[in-house]
Write a protein that binds this DNA or RNA. Structure first.
Lengths: 252, 252
DNA sequence: ATCTCCTTTGTTTAAAATTAACATTTGCAG
DNA sequence: CTGCAAATGTTAATTTTAAACAAAGGAGAT
């Protein structure tokens, strides 16, 4: 009972890097806060985690935080993104061929993903590194120039790149969405890449947390008719939900 | 005033590993607790320390504390590799176009590299992530299937990939070398990739620590005549050094 | 110099998190 | 079943933190 929970706590912390006590309580609804505190104490003694004010973080995360110039971006609407990523993770079936983009939501998705046999294509190198830990996942990285802000690559040669490639699903996210401008991002070449991906993908899943709504970015890469499923959080406005459903999009 | 104090706080924390706020107050008697708190906040944002309840600790300390629990790999001949990487780093000039492979030595190289304006092409995603921290370095990642053991990509499409690309220098390392079999690695596609790179590179630098000598791996990608400079450690056997020099290779 | 604006620092106070202490439950050997 | 010990829950006290505001410097402009 205790032993297992300790393992689970350590695992989830390894996955998410950093969690508040509140988040831990949500993850373990049937034990008290005090118990979780005691668990953290013990894990700390074992050197598996570091306890920080408000919660705890994994050792890996410490190294990451100190290693990179810590981008604040990772924490904007993080909870919503994790929920969305978890949902998306359940949609991945064994043996499928999938494209995943290089955004932060995709990063969470790759952490939450089950370790099943499948082929993943991605343009995010952080995503690729994360997935490399999964034994059964075949990974292919899309080459190209690296954008340092989001660690994703894109290349004008994307077209040829995907000539002989097909995806069952493409799971992507956008930086912005409005009904008029569709889904947009901030890089021309990334936009081109995604358009190319959509052509070769049987289904397109869009992960969109509600903070993106009403915003506009310079490059539109998809409109409502291009996507099949929308995965979002629970504060997603009702009128938008209706709008998506009118366009035959499944909203989760 | 503030700047210096921040430095001092970071230093003393690095030294002592872990301090409570009380201890910090003793160390800095002429500022208020709140100021120290604010300093810690800032250092935390910069990724230099980790704030814990009651005080703070240095990143080093975290690693030490957790060191026992976490297995450290990539230590095979690490010292030699670092020395080689440092040497190689000095050979990179501003404004050049360079290919770097995805091996562990290349990883150290990317850490040691100066942050100068240049174009780096690599097939190592760990290398790419490391380089992403350098503001002035333009990075292009070679796409392809990801090999999980060394986090490098390679693709049969390498040929087309490099059609319009040229390198001033290619800095690569091999997994094995013998005079008869040349430089070899353990992946067919990576071998192809490197051969392609050599065609487009003006100079080829080989980083080879002495542990690689006398070993054979399945795929030879270069012979003595293909390389221009050899960067190695100081226990490199004399007879091999002579051999290289006979082939007009500069040995460092 | 004097003034203004902005940053830094200090102080007080409210909020939050943590621990301690004690009560309750659970599992299990005898 | 009984009693003990480990695990967990609950509450209250303690400690730590952050927020808000006030004061003190510091740099540049006039």
């Amino acid at each position: 009972m205790k032993r297992e929970r300790l393992e689970e706590v350590a695992e989830i912390l390894d996955k998410r890097g950093k969690m508040t006590l509140e988040q831990l309580e949500e993850a373990f609804p049937d034990v008290s806060q005090m118990t979780l505190r005691r668990d953290l104490s013990q894990l700390e003694e074992d050197g598996r985690i570091i306890r920080i004010r408000g919660g705890a973080m994994s050792v890996k995360e410490v190294q990451k935080v100190s290693g990179e110039a810590y981008t604040k971006k990772t924490t904007i609407n993080m909870d919503a993104k994790i929920v969305i990523a978890q949902k998306a993770a359940t949609l991945i079936d064994e043996g499928t061929s999938i494209f995943i983009d290089g955004g932060t939501t995709a990063m969470y998705l790759s952490k939450e993903m089950p370790d099943i046999k499948c082929n993943i294509f991605t343009n995010g190198i952080a995503v690729a590194m994360e997935l490399a830990q999964k034994k059964n996942v075949e990974i292919t990285v899309v080459g190209g120039q690296l954008m340092k802000d989001n660690l994703s690559t894109s290349s004008p040669a994307a077209k040829e790149y995907f000539d002989n490639t097909n995806f069952e699903i493409a799971i992507v996210s956008a930086l912005a969405f409005t009904p008029e401008h569709g889904f947009s991002c901030n890089s021309q070449t990334e936009s081109d890449l995604l358009k190319q991906v959509f052509k070769k993908a049987r289904h397109v899943y869009m992960m969109l947390d509600s903070s993106k709504i009403g915003k506009i970015n310079p490059y539109t890469f998809a409109h409502l008719e291009d996507i099949d499923v929308l995965i979002t959080d629970d504060v997603f406005p009702r009128e938008y939900k209706a709008l998506f459903e009118q366009n035959d999009i499944v909203v989760m």
